[in-house]
């Protein structure tokens, strides 16, 4: 009945069996909190984000932080070596993590990361794509949909312009990037289901 935390936001998947569930959660929280703060700092630098109402800023961040983290940490997944590097710096093989109970979510995250990394985006392109991921007008709880939609459209136009300029002979890159958005939603839903399972456990 050993428990493992196969999320790479941990320092390690191994959980001290002597620790209570609350202690395990606290430790995990210490691992992901700095990354979440970085997402907030990133959001604040998106031109136009701070003009949105505070309610909508919070709603976008609540709904999109996981997806932003998936994009930011795509490089943790190495599908050639079939390894995942945890934030503690240690690498674990996909097979070992599967034996620890990782399921479809980690496999799907690996697939997503591999395809995203294969696009060979620059840091600037990746940042703009991440901004597009975060500013989505169809997130739940948005008060001023029109404002979020306007910012979203501006960001998508900027992304298209940047990608077209940088990849003149690869017309499909922009389309492929937009198709990553529903993939991220799907990963987000799977992650929410796993959180529920974790809490029930």
């Amino acid at each position: 009945n050993r428990m493992y935390l196969v999320c790479p936001m941990n320092t390690s998947p191994h959980v001290d069996p002597l620790k209570s569930g609350h202690e395990v959660w606290e430790e995990f929280s210490h691992c992901f909190t700095p990354a979440v703060r970085e997402v907030v700092e990133f959001a604040k630098k998106i031109p136009g984000f701070r003009v949105l109402s505070q309610h909508d800023q919070v709603s976008l961040l609540k709904a999109g932080t996981f997806e932003v983290l998936v994009v930011r940490f795509a490089s943790l997944f190495d599908m050639k070596e079939r390894t995942v590097t945890f934030l503690g710096g240690n690498k674990y093989s996909v097979d070992a993590l599967r034996a620890m109970g990782s399921g479809d979510l980690l496999n799907s995250m690996s697939d997503f990361s591999e395809k995203l990394m294969n696009l060979g985006l620059s840091e600037e392109e990746m940042s703009l794509f991440t901004a597009v991921v975060l500013v989505s007008a169809d997130r739940s709880g948005i008060e001023n949909v029109n404002s979020v939609e306007a910012l979203q459209e501006t960001l998508i136009r900027a992304l298209r312009s940047l990608i077209t300029r940088n990849h003149p002979n690869e017309s499909a890159v922009f389309t492929k990037l937009l198709l990553k958005l529903p993939d991220l939603r799907s990963l987000n839903n799977m992650h929410s289901e796993q959180l529920l399972a974790f809490k029930v456990h």
């Binding site: 929280s29 979440v36 907030v40 505070q54 961040l61 609540k62 932080t65 809490k199």
Partner: peptide, 27 residues
């Protein structure tokens, strides 16, 4: 389940990071 961000404590972290900055700007 409907609000995993709140369950994780994410909302607190997000609000502190956003509002903390607002307070700094007011100072």
């Amino acid at each position: 389940f409907n609000d995993p961000a709140s369950n994780l404590g994410l909302e607190d972290i997000i609000r502190k990071a956003l509002i903390g900055n607002l307070e700094e700007r007011q100072e």
